[in-house]
Design a binder for these strands. Sequence first.
RNA 1: GUCUCCAUCGUCCAGUGGUCAGGACACAGCCCUUUCAAGGCUGCGACACGGGUUCGACUCCCGUUGGAGACGCCA
Length: 474
Amino acid sequence: MAQPRLRIAPSPTGYLHVGTARTALYNYLYAKQQNGVFVLRIEDTDVERSSKEMTEIIIEGLKWLGLNYDEGPFFQSDYFKHYTDYIPELEKTGGIYRCFCTPKELDERKNIVMAEKKAWKYDRKCAHLTKDEINKNLESKKPFAWRVRIPEGKTNYDDMIHGIIEKDNSEIEDFIIVRSDNTPIYNFAVVVDDVRMKITHVVRGDDHISNTFKQIHIYRLLNAEPPRFAHLPLILDENKAKLSKRTGTVSVLAFRDMGVLPEAFVNFIALIGWNPGGDKEIMSLDEMVKLFSFEKVTKKGGVFDYKKLEWMNSKYITNYDSKKLLEITKPFFKEAGIDISQVSEETLFKIMDSVKEKARYLKDIPQLTKFFFEEIKEYDEKGKSKFLTPDRIEHLKVLKERLMNVEIFNHDSVEAVYKAYAEEKSLKGADIIHPTRMALSGKTEGPSLFLMMEIMGKERVLSRLTKIIESDIL
RNA sequence: GUCUCCAUCGUCCAGUGGUCAGGACACAGCCCUUUCAAGGCUGCGACACGGGUUCGACUCCCGUUGGAGACGCCA
């Protein structure tokens, strides 16, 4: 069997859609698993709406996801003028014909039919024009489009996900493949490209099923063997409608900018509509390549569940290597205006580790660790009244004195001081821990206190305690 | 409206004729605990409906209902 060749063919609309990303992923998984080739082709036949920047964004998104393509990017626009090369041959066989109906005429006839609540389909007005009529139109320079002549019978194909799907040809209209300005229509360009690029498997969204019937006829006219088709269920929004820009976040890069890890995102979207069987959920791209199969792809559309993404992301953050985590989080510190350049890398790793399992998104991390890097601007109001009471401040005074005498200032030594003091005064650990936390971070929550103190270092701990003790903050 | 696709907890998935219908997210409670989070445990919660086929249907067939998608000289 020939080497499988798959492709992702997005149109450059300005962002990489979540649905497109998942389609790309499934294409990628199958291609890799079968030792095939994964091709990127940009569908930019709509020149008006396409631009270099938009293409860049798509490439950036794919790169972020780690879905590296083997060939491309190819641009439909590069081949633009060649699509019509096929027309003379197709005309000879009678498979296509000129349609002189203007869009306006079409519209009028369509409205009449629709008014009767009937389904509109091109009425084949130009399908049976005589040679003379055609020549007359041609001579008078009447513009025309090319339509495919759909024969009687049925059209069917064996979908890798849905099985055999069939449609009566009477339901397929004589559709246009070339506009009156001599440019190709999507359905035509796709098939020509897929044939040229020797694509063996077309994997795309469910919403293309109806196009597939039309495209099969183009393959027939081109005398080409159709590829295998796999139509993926759509990704839905909370209202179970096709996920769109209007109803939620659909841009892949927007998730990156929120602080979603690419591994988590890929893992998450893979699971909308696919699962290797059993309970396995957390998987790397490589594992998915091994496990993937179209038999296991669901037929039902799946809702994009932000809560689950959030959970999965937090899981990935927790398990991320501190060094990698720091690297990927740096932009978020910058965005939050927090300068981390004065802190040693070793300390930064510790800081990462201390909040790893608390963050849902990377953008949470700067907020969670802010107090390590800058002076406290405000103290939590509730925490102040609850923990920074006069009696607690008295304790802090003593503790501060004792901490001053600690030579090796680390988690264990600091803990020893607190334990001893609590025992001495018959206090609960919480009685002195919470006030200290308030003094050091201004917050009532955060990493383990003694770890926090170790990370901050003796000097800073003492100065912040002093600040609380000496201020009339209450 | 026509055609096509689809139908298991609120959500994502397991299930392929005989299961107490399983897991995950979410939600609630409890435990652990220096806080938050994490973790552990428990609970809540589904086979859309109606006919068949079968000794036996969530599973197979038909219909109904419901949902989605497509019906462009867009992609």
